[in-house]
Structure formats: C-alpha cells, structure tokens
Design a protein around this nucleic acid. Structure first.
Lengths: 70, 70
DNA sequence: TTTTATTGTAACATATAAATTACATTTTAC
DNA sequence: GTAAAATGTAATTTATATGTTACAATAAAA
C-alpha cells in the first residue's frame, strides 16, 4: 500500500476515523467530494465554516488540521 | 451546506493585545479595515488563511478565536 | 461643546471558494 | 488478471469573500 503523506493531517484524521472515504466525510460535513479532495490536496483556501465542520466531525482542533504553508 | 453559527473573540483579543484598532490589526494581517470590521461583526465567513494570519498575530489559537455553536 | 479618531456600512468590482457535471486515473476488491 | 470503488481533475456556473471608494455614525479626546 502506498504511504500516506504525514503532512496531510485531514487525510490522516479521516483514515483514523474509521477509514472514511472522501465522499463519506464530504457528505457528513455537507460539502462535495470534489471540495474535500481539493482541500486535502491543499489546492483550496477553505472557509472557516468548512474547517469548523471538518474539525468537529473528525474531532480534531482546527489548529491541528490546518496549518500555515511555509 | 449545513448552517452553523460562528462566534469569534477577535475583538477581545485585539483589545487585549495593546488596544489595537481594527485598522492596525487589519494592516498587520494584510486585509482591509472593512474586512476586519465584517469579520468581527460576524457578517463574513472568512477563509482559513485570514484566520491563520489573525491567529498568529494575536497569538491565539484559531479554535479559541473562531468557535462553532449549535 | 467641538474636533478627531474609530467604527459601521453601502455600492460596486474582482477574485476565488464551492457546486455541478463529467471523465480520467488510481486504488482496492475479487 | 479484471471489475468496481475511490480519487484526481477539468470546464463551467454560482455564491460569496475581499478590495475600493465613499460617507455616516459613534467614541474618544481636546
């Protein structure tokens, strides 16, 4: 199996929360699968609302899931 | 997308950080005064990037400044 | 009080987050 | 190996975050 990037905290938390798929997490959070994909790929600058929803569902603080790019 | 109400303590943290004005904080963070005003008035759903900048400058975690309420 | 700094907000323009549809590629199951 | 599921991504549309300009309303200071 391919290694998961350690930097991708959202993906890690998603996997750790019962091997959720992007689609399952997206549905639970209320965004599209594509949006979740882009957020995990760090190609979006998501809104705090979406971050809060992801944070709550994955039971991880926002500061842990979303960090500043250097 | 599911609705959630977002409360923030940005104004409090701004005052506690040496009585900064909205304009001063906005300039330090790199947004307009109007944007800071709307964020504090909770009339915006800011991006995580702006939240991170505010969080760093005010030296407060995002989870403390922007929190969700059912 | 009068003056000045600070904040609220409106109208409009621009940039981009997010949705939608669709298809390609990769991963996983069999 | 093949088939199905999961993921990546492109093109287009819609919604909205943010900027710009401007002015009104408060707060603070004199």
């Amino acid at each position: 199996m391919k290694e998961i990037s350690v930097k991708n905290k959202v993906k890690l938390a998603r996997i750790e929360k019962g091997n959720l798929t992007q689609g399952e997490l997206a549905k639970s959070v209320g965004v599209t699968r594509q949006t979740m994909s882009l957020i995990e790929a760090q190609k979006y600058n998501p809104t705090i609302k979406v971050c809060l929803l992801i944070s709550k569902y994955l039971e991880r603080p926002i500061d842990e899931l979303f960090w500043a790019e250097e």
